[in-house]
């Protein structure tokens, strides 16, 4: 029983981790007042770049770094178009996703069908062998721990640092931030590229740890779920974590329920993660003031420094 529970929890964690990375990155981007719908595309480019780097160097650290850089470069492109050239953010974000899907397929042509060793899992003597908490808490690969550190780090940065305050101010009122002498465009570039790097990291998690291979479109919509999670979490990092684990948990549980022979149609079970998300969204939105307090007021708005 305990073994089954541990097995379920381990899978929940791995299913949630890519969502945690991508949603935390997007949260920072949105907090700075930019809506980047290109998460899916950045994830895919990160996944294929990380995979290619892992094949070429055999070094997971380099692979992860390359994936982050690739995601950040994609985000930089988005920044050039939306921040410097002031293109519409929604349209540009959608275009970025399509571009990412195509570009990753092109880069990945020669990697289809190539297997790779999964990232090593943590193995601490004694601790990793404990029942239940051993495999769940002490037996994951290091990216899982990194994702938790990132959430804590982003929460601390936004809440308790001056730089975080400035970033939030830019998202709340870019005119005021500009009047105070802050470089709105510069700050937004940084936030967008951070979001891109995190999406790249999410992609690397997919192609190096979750399903260690490259296949076209392997993110299969997880970028869009990450986007929804940011709203779900009302722009709070801690809730991103809760949302991602809830989503991952329901996804895995419904697979187990099917295997155990629950007499519920599988289509309904497949709907569950999405239903759960909607229900929580509805519950949260009953308190609309709180949402308005958390949502960046300038999200998606183009900033003209001259006006």
């Amino acid at each position: 029983m305990i073994e089954t529970l541990a097995a379920i929890l381990v899978t929940v964690v791995t299913a949630a981790t890519p969502l945690v990375f991508a949603a935390t990155g997007e949260l920072v981007t949105e907090k700075a007042g930019v809506l980047n719908l290109g998460v899916e595309g950045m994830m895919l480019v990160g996944a294929v770049s990380g995979f290619a780097a892992a094949i070429a160097t055999g070094n997971p650290a380099i692979a992860i770094l390359v994936a982050m850089i690739a995601g950040a470069v994609m985000a930089f492109l988005f920044g050039v178009l939306t921040l410097s050239l002031m293109a519409n953010q929604v349209a540009t974000g959608l275009a970025l996703t399509m571009f990412g899907v195509g570009l990753s397929a092109l880069i990945g042509q020669d990697y289809v069908g190539t297997p790779i060793k999964a990232l090593a899992k943590l193995d601490i003597p004694v601790l990793s062998d404990l029942p239940l908490i051993g495999p769940v808490v002490f037996g994951q690969d290091f990216l899982v721990y990194l994702s938790l550190v990132m959430v804590a780090g982003v929460a601390w940065f936004l809440k308790s640092t001056r730089a975080g305050l400035i970033l939030r101010a830019t998202g709340e009122s870019h005119d005021a931030a500009h009047a105070l002498g802050y470089s709105v465009i510069g700050i937004r570039y940084l936030a967008v590229m951070f979001g891109g790097a995190m999406s790249g990291l999410a992609g690397a998690y997919l192609s190096l740890a979750y399903t260690p291979m490259w296949a076209e479109n392997m993110s299969a919509g997880r970028g869009w779920i990450a986007l929804a999670l940011v709203v779900f979490a009302t722009w709070k990092p801690g809730r991103v974590l809760v949302g991602a684990y809830l989503f991952g948990g329901v996804t895995i549980l419904q697979l187990h329920a099917q295997g155990a022979g629950f007499a519920v149609p599988s289509q309904a079970l497949s709907m569950l993660p999405y239903l759960a998300t909607i229900v929580v969204l509805v519950v949260i939105s009953r308190d609309s003031t709180r949402i308005r307090l958390n949502a960046p007021a300038c999200i998606g708005k183009v900033f003209h420094p001259e006006t």
Partner: peptide, 27 residues
């Protein structure tokens, strides 16, 4: 035979998770 439907032709992550769930249940 235990059957798990993933309601997708192609989703590596979900297919892998389904395999894990089935193995955890004794397959």
């Amino acid at each position: 035979v235990k059957v798990v439907w993933v309601n997708s032709w192609y989703d590596p992550g979900k297919e892998g998770d389904a395999a894990k769930a089935l193995i955890d249940q004794g397959a």
